[in-house]
């Protein structure tokens, strides 16, 4: 089943950049923020909510259309696959993406999300999710019942309860 990355709960972002660090170290052999395919931005410093910029997994990707060399092809589940060999860094795809989700790396190759599913594993605040989609990229409608109550069981439900489960013997 095809999946795509979704910024499910943008307002929950704490601006930790864990997703960016994880993405960059997964797909590059260097340490950086700049090679991350997801970009956490500030609009008014830390005083205002963070903005998460990442590929929207378009069903009919405009970046692909804009590429004069055919370096981008349709990805199963939406978005694109990049053929690095072909990409020459012309930047037309960057222009075409209104999300602002594409930039170039040091070798002048496009940096675009692969919807690989790594970054949600490193988001401590439930911002990012992988969702199932049709191979075409169309959203699948599976839930038809009432929206689940997402409020925590207790107002002080902890990070650990939410993300780590119970782990014995660590009360210090």
């Amino acid at each position: 089943m095809a999946k795509r990355l979704k910024v499910a709960n943008p307002a929950r972002c704490i601006g930790c950049y864990s997703c960016m660090m994880a993405c960059a170290r997964t797909w590059y052999d260097t340490i950086s923020l700049k090679n991350s395919r997801i970009d956490i931005q500030t609009r008014g410093g830390i005083e205002t909510p963070y903005v998460q910029i990442v590929c929207h997994a378009c069903i009919d990707p405009p970046c692909m259309r804009a590429c004069p060399l055919g370096a981008l092809s349709k990805r199963k589940g939406g978005g694109v696959n990049l053929n690095k060999e072909i990409c020459d860094g012309c930047g037309n795809c960057i222009e075409a993406c209104l999300m602002g989700a594409i930039h170039l790396d040091a070798e002048n190759k496009a940096v675009i999300c692969k919807h690989c599913g790594v970054c949600p594993k490193f988001c401590p605040h439930d911002v990012l999710e992988m969702v199932e989609v049709e191979d075409s990229g169309e959203v699948k409608i599976t839930d038809t019942g009432p929206a689940p109550d997402t409020s925590p069981v207790s107002p002080t439900a902890s990070h650990k309860d939410l993300y780590g489960g119970e782990e014995p013997g660590e009360e210090e």
Binding site: S18, A22, R25, Y28, T30, S32, K160, G164
Partner: peptide, 29 residues
């Protein structure tokens, strides 16, 4: 600043990042 830093032992670096992240987020520490 927005440079790339070299990573002499990238796999080791990645593994250690994962380990530290889990200790920070998934334990009570």
């Amino acid at each position: 600043g927005n440079r790339e830093l070299k990573s002499p032992e990238h796999n080791a670096y990645r593994k250690t990042c994962n380990l530290l992240y889990d200790l920070i987020v998934k334990t009570g520490l």
